[in-house]
Computed example of a mutant assay.
Amino acid sequence: MTATDFLDHLTATLAEIEAAGLYKRERLILSPQGTHVTVGGERLLNLCANNYLGLADDPALIAAAHRALDDHGFGMASVRFICGTQDLHRALERRIAGFLGMDDSILFAACFDANGGLFEPLLGPEDAVVSDALNHASIIDGIRLCKARRYRYANSDMAGLEAQLQAARSDGARFVLIATDGVFSMDGYLARLPEITALAAKYGALTMVDDCHATGFMGPRGCGTPAHHGVRVDILTGTLGKALGGALGGYVAGPQPVIDLLRQRARPYLFSNALPPAIVAAGLAAIDIVEAADDLRERLFGNAAYWRAGLQDAGFDLLPGEHPIVPVMTGEARLAQAMAAELYRRGVFVSGFFFPVVPEGRARIRTQMNARLTREDLDFGLEAFRAAGRAAGVI
Rank of each mutant, 00 (worst) to 15 (best):
M1Q: 11
A3Q: 14
D8I: 13
A12M: 09
A20D: 15
L28H: 10
I29H: 07
I29A: 04
L30G: 05
Q33V: 12
T35H: 03
H36F: 01
V37L: 07
E42L: 11
R43C: 09
L44H: 06
Y52C: 08
L53Y: 01
D57T: 08
D57C: 04
L61F: 02
I62D: 08
A64L: 03
A65V: 00
H66K: 12
R67A: 11
A68E: 13
L69K: 02
G73H: 02
M76L: 10
V79G: 10
H89W: 12
R94A: 12
L100A: 01
G101N: 05
S105T: 10
I106T: 07
A109Y: 03
A109C: 04
D113Q: 01
A114H: 13
A114P: 04
L122K: 06
E126G: 08
S131L: 12
A133M: 09
N135Q: 11
R150N: 01
R150K: 15
R150Y: 12
A154I: 06
A154F: 08
A154K: 07
A159H: 13
L165E: 07
D171W: 10
G172Q: 14
A173F: 03
F175A: 15
A179R: 04
G188I: 10
G188Y: 02
Y189S: 15
P194W: 11
Y203P: 02
Y203M: 02
D211Y: 08
C212T: 05
T215N: 02
G219S: 03
P226E: 05
A227E: 01
H229C: 14
G230H: 01
L236E: 13
L240G: 05
G241T: 03
K242G: 04
A243D: 05
L244D: 00
A247P: 00
L248Y: 11
Y251I: 05
Y251H: 00
Y251P: 02
A253T: 03
G254I: 09
L261M: 13
R263F: 04
R265E: 09
R267I: 06
L270A: 07
A278L: 08
I287Y: 00
E291N: 08
D294T: 06
D295H: 14
F301C: 09
A305H: 08
Y306I: 09
W307R: 03
A309W: 11
A314R: 06
G315I: 04
F316M: 10
E332V: 06
L335A: 08
Q337P: 06
A338K: 09
A340I: 08
L343C: 06
R346H: 00
G347H: 10
S351W: 10
S351G: 10
F354L: 07
F355E: 01
P356R: 00
V357S: 07
E360F: 14
G361Y: 13
G361V: 14
R362N: 04
R364M: 15
R366A: 13
M369G: 11
T374N: 09
L378K: 05
G381S: 14
L382E: 09
R390A: 13
A391D: 15
G393W: 04
G393P: 05
